[in-house]
Design a protein around this nucleic acid. Structure first.
Lengths: 222, 222
DNA sequence: GTACGGGACAAACCTAGGTATAGCTCGTCT
DNA sequence: AGACGAGCTATACCTAGGTTTGTCCCGTAC
């Protein structure tokens, strides 16, 4: 069913995966067939703990959850995943949901909440949108965590200088604030540019924005 | 009921307003009393067109909408407001809502969706959260639109230079790309700094980020 | 103890950024 | 026609940014 023919090193490069969690085996089968019919990889589980035992996916993916699951409910699973810092987009499916449930799920970031019977096109669209969102989220995350790891390679003094420089101060002002000589700041600044991989001050400013190193305000003078 | 005593110039400085749209007069009264009891200003309407006739508020505010309204439904009103570029947070109240309605409302940005009977504390919390969100939205909007109006005072050449400078190019590189002399770029650059009210290149980069003037990527070299 | 890395600084040197003054063309508004 | 603003440039001058080479102190890991 799933066309994985053993340890083939290529092939699953960026192939998205749909995870299904539903206690109803016939539902799992139906959804699996549906998703595979449009070329998506699928992994299906009967309960929340089974899903949690697998390692978080490294490719764009989404979850299709029945809200009523034995043991951990779909909503609890959503909370647990959020706590575990796993932000795979979730699509809920429900037979007997109510409005407060829906609101809670949507407020917690669910991308859709479908009621049974689910039309094929409806859930395919939802899955497509969810995977697209996850792809974007992953792209952003990759960029930011790359910058963060560079930032962590800075010494504490270099970080001091970074934050003052990106806040717009001149070298001499940075030096004054840190009680250093201007030449020292210049040297640190060069080291920062190299370690951060920034080609220009503009790059550095953007990186520090991404890291959340804010000075005060998008400072404007009248 | 509404304690506005004529044209008093002070008093409504940043006083938030709750707008209510509900065709049930007794419900309007109950909600109005509830909100006023905690010191909130209230304006209540019986239908969507009545609300649309008033000018968009200039203070943090939120909407409390019954989803079933005569004529334009709550959901349609939400869409209309979005089209009119009015992004006041919306709290829906419903007696007989269903899940697809809820999902649609939440996907379109509603902050909450409550079912009757509504507990007092529940809706007060929702209103508080909505007003807080609107306050933040307004703050951000004010900052960005200030920057945008400065940007609009730039000549087209100045804008060219701005985008290349904030993308990290040196003056001579900007000059080469635009077919100008370096000195010309320097002079435009100075004019840009003055017109934009930027105290430093870092400021200018942040402003261009806020304006969505992106070069390509948070450019990193390995 | 010594080797190593962080932190700090200096002299010398070069490039980049930025201002003031002045002068030119071109199109448009009056 | 004349004034005006955008666009463009030059000379001259000054400040800010940035690298290289070399030196010193200190704490810690081996």
């Amino acid at each position: 069913m799933n066309e994985r023919a053993g340890p083939s090193p290529k092939e699953d490069g960026d192939q998205p995966i749909v995870f299904i969690v539903d206690d109803d085996a016939s539902m799992r089968r139906a959804l699996t067939n549906l998703f595979e019919s449009v070329g998506l990889k699928v992994e299906a589980f009967g309960s929340a703990p089974q899903l949690l035992q697998t390692k978080p996916p490294e490719v764009p993916s989404c979850l299709v959850l029945d809200i009523r699951l034995p043991g951990t409910s779909g909503l609890e699973l959503q909370t647990d995943l959020a706590k575990a810092n796993i932000h795979t987009p979730i699509i809920f499916i429900t037979g007997h949901g109510d409005i407060p449930m829906t609101v809670r799920a949507m407020k917690s970031g669910a991308i859709d909440f479908l009621t049974k019977p689910v039309r094929d096109q409806e859930i395919l669209d939802a899955v497509q949108a969810a995977i697209e969102r996850d792809r974007k989220r992953r792209d952003l995350y990759k960029t930011v965590s790359d910058v963060r790891s560079r930032f962590e390679s800075l010494t504490s003094r270099e970080r001091d200088v970074l934050s003052l420089v990106t806040s717009g101060l001149m070298n001499k002002q940075v030096a004054a604030q840190l009680g250093l000589a201007e030449i020292t700041v210049k040297i640190y600044r060069g080291q920062i540019m190299r370690k951060m991989g920034a080609k220009s001050l503009a790059d550095l400013v953007r990186m520090s924005e991404a890291l959340g190193i804010r000075p005060s305000k998008p400072d404007v003078q009248t």
